[in-house]
Design a protein around this nucleic acid. Structure first.
Lengths: 145, 145
DNA sequence: CTCATTGCAAATGATTTGCAAGAAA
DNA sequence: TTTCTTGCAAATCATTTGCAATGAG
C-alpha cells in the first residue's frame, strides 16, 4: 500500500483513510475528525487535515469544493459526479449517467487544453421536496448558484 | 434601477457594481476592494463583501466558487460557463459552447428534482502551456480536481 | 424622519503552520 | 538512526458581524 509521495504508513493515516472509505456520505474534515476520534481519541484535527490533503494530492481520495464554505472529501477516487441539494446542501453521488452525456467537441475552448471538467448537479432532494410541500415553484433558474 | 431586496442605491453599491462590470476578469472581493478604493478611498472591505453578497442574491451578478479558497465574482448574471487553468488558477469565460451540449435525459437523478448544474472546465491556459514547454504530459485525469 | 447602509474593529470559522516529541522504515 | 509525522497551540485567511454614525428616500 504505497502511494506516491506518501512515505510512511502511520496509524493515523490508515484510520483517516479507512473511515472515509467506510462512511457513505461526503464528510468535512471536522466530521472525519470526530469519526476518527472514536477509534483514536488523541488524533488531532491538524493531522486529519494534513492526511486528507496528502491523500487527495496522491489521488487516493478526492477533495470536493461543492458547497461554498468547507471542503468535503470523497473516498472514491474515480471520476464520478455529484448531486447537491440546494436546500439542505447534502451531497450524493449521481448514479446512472450515460457516460457520453457531455459532447466531445467541448474539449478545446478559448485556446485552453481542456483536461477535464467539474460538474455538479443542483437539485432538491426527496426529503426537502416533501417538506416544502408546494413543489419548489420558486427555485432559481438553471445553472445559477 | 431597482433590484428586488436592494432598497437603497448607495454610492458604494454603485461603485462596486460598476467596477465589477467594467473589469474583464473574475475578481475576488479583496481585489474589487482595491479597485473600488481607487475611486472611493474610504470604502470598507466589509461594505464590498456586503454589496457583492446582496447583488449576487438579487441576480445582478454571480458569485463563483470555482477554485477552492476565495469566492470570485462575475459581473455577467447570465448563465455561462468558465474555464479554469489548473496551473495558474486563472478563470475565463468559456466561449462558443453548443447550447445543448449536456444531454436532456440528465434532468432527474437519484430522486432529485434537478434544477441546474454547475459546470467548470479545467485546462491549461496558453501561457502556462508555453511556460511548461513539455506539453503537460503529466496532468491529472479528466474530472479530477 | 426612518431605517437601510456604512466604516470600523472585533469575531468567527476553516484551514495552515511552527516546533519539539514520537514513530515508521 | 534518519526524517517523516504527530499533537498542540498559535497563526493565517476569507468572510461575517455588532454597533454607533451616516445618508438615501
Amino acid at each position: 500500500m504505497v502511494y506516491g509521495i506518501l512515505q510512511r504508513n502511520t496509524r493515523q493515516r490508515a484510520v483517516v483513510l479507512e473511515e472515509l472509505k467506510k462512511v457513505c456520505g461526503h464528510p468535512t474534515a471536522a466530521e472525519l475528525y470526530e469519526i476518527a476520534r472514536a477509534r483514536m481519541p488523541k488524533i488531532s484535527l491538524g493531522t486529519v487535515y494534513r492526511n486528507l490533503e496528502l491523500l487527495a494530492q496522491n489521488g487516493v481520495i478526492q477533495k470536493l469544493h461543492i458547497s461554498g464554505a468547507e471542503a468535503r472529501f470523497d473516498g472514491n477516487p474515480d471520476r464520478h459526479y455529484h448531486v447537491c441539494c440546494i436546500h439542505c446542501e447534502r451531497i450524493e453521488d449521481a448514479h446512472d449517467l450515460p457516460d457520453d452525456f457531455v459532447k466531445e467537441e467541448v474539449r478545446s475552448l478559448a485556446g485552453y487544453d481542456i483536461v477535464g471538467f467539474r460538474l455538479d448537479f443542483l437539485g432538491v432532494c426527496p426529503d426537502c421536496r416533501d417538506e416544502d410541500g408546494a413543489g419548489g415553484g420558486g427555485t432559481s433558474p438553471l445553472g445559477r448558484e
